Computed example of a mutant assay.
Amino acid sequence: MTRHSQRHRTTTLPFSYRDKGVDFDLDSFTVDDGDRTALELNPSQTEINLTSAVSSSDSSGEPDWDTITLHGKLRLSEETVQAVFPEDERAHPPAKLYVTIRCHETIYRDREVISEAPTAPGEYDVRVEVPKDTVRGTVELRPYLVRTEARSGEEPNDYADQENFRVASGTLYYVIVDRHEEEERAAIDGERVRFSQNAHLPDGNKLYYLDFRNESRPKLWINSDHPRIAEVLQSRGSVGAEARMRDVILDQVSYGVWVQLLVRAGSAVDVKGEVKHEWQEMVLQTFARNLYDTSDVSEATRRLRDHLSDPQTLPHVMQRIDSELQEYIDPREQLIHLMEEGLQI
């Protein structure tokens, strides 16, 4: 049983966690280089509709903007730090603070680091950029406080002791950047269809298929021969069993999709470290530097190409890719939410 209020609820994780331990307030936004505009949100409002602010179109009929930037504050309290870190770490908490950026429709995830370790209690400015070419529909923003160091040689206690464990989170915002019926170009196209009625799609009970017949524009097909799964994937809620199942299914799909995109993009790098297609550049910009712990994306992409083409290094680079995608997608979080929902905790 927990003694905390709902605002600072401890989950069923095997360590202290605050799901409302970081106060997150968005107060304004800018479109490209335009003026900063106040959001004027109502208390407890978490849905932010920006479609009217970006509704002007260019000659092709597409919305004429490149980046939306959201501004606000994150506040980390002494109470949260005391709850999730042992006493000897509270003066200099080994944690970073970031905001995750997620778009279900394009299977896009990113994060904006707000504070590197150590992250002490206090108020932090937030500036989150949302690029048009990576999202469509609704974008989700949520802050997390994450451990950056493992505690070695310690007896088990009530605190997280491993690197990259999330120990606190805050309000989840839903930012609508275009209307659902508008056909905004995503990182890759997606469509639900019955595989059994389409000869170009695989037989059997496949859940999804990533189609590279048009190398310049891959397409993700979701198999609607599984009507219950397709129905869950269309769920737009944020709580409840369907929302939790949707997030777990999307994590599973996105892992397989990212592996294919990353291997294909890495294999397409030329001798100059360049690629032909926009989606390849997007994938390499997102992952290559982290795979090789370097700030030089050209160096990272060349190393990725070489390692993918060499049978001796291929197993090792696939292990790197797996590790990076587990960190990027973080399937553990959605699985915990689903298990809690199933246990009615």
Results as ranks from 00 to 15, higher is better:
T2K: 03
R3N: 13
L13N: 12
V22A: 00
D33K: 10
L39C: 07
P43S: 08
P43H: 01
I48V: 09
T51Q: 05
D58I: 05
S59N: 04
G61K: 08
T69L: 11
G72K: 15
H92S: 12
A95M: 06
K96W: 10
L97A: 01
T100R: 14
I101V: 14
R102Q: 14
H104P: 15
T106F: 00
Y108K: 02
D110H: 01
A117F: 08
P118F: 01
V128I: 12
T138H: 02
L141T: 00
Y144F: 14
T148E: 05
T148S: 05
E155S: 13
D158P: 05
T171P: 02
L172Y: 06
L172A: 09
D178K: 05
A186W: 00
A186G: 13
A187G: 14
R194H: 13
Q197T: 09
A199E: 13
L201H: 10
D203F: 12
D203K: 15
D211C: 13
L220D: 01
P227L: 03
P227K: 04
E231Y: 11
S235H: 12
G237I: 04
A241L: 12
R244L: 03
V248D: 05
G256C: 09
V259S: 11
Q260V: 04
L262S: 00
K272C: 04
V275N: 00
W279T: 00
Q285S: 12
T286H: 07
Y292Q: 02
V297D: 01
S309K: 14
T313Q: 10
P315Y: 11
Q319P: 04
Q319T: 15
D330S: 14
L338P: 02
L338C: 05
E341F: 06
I345L: 05
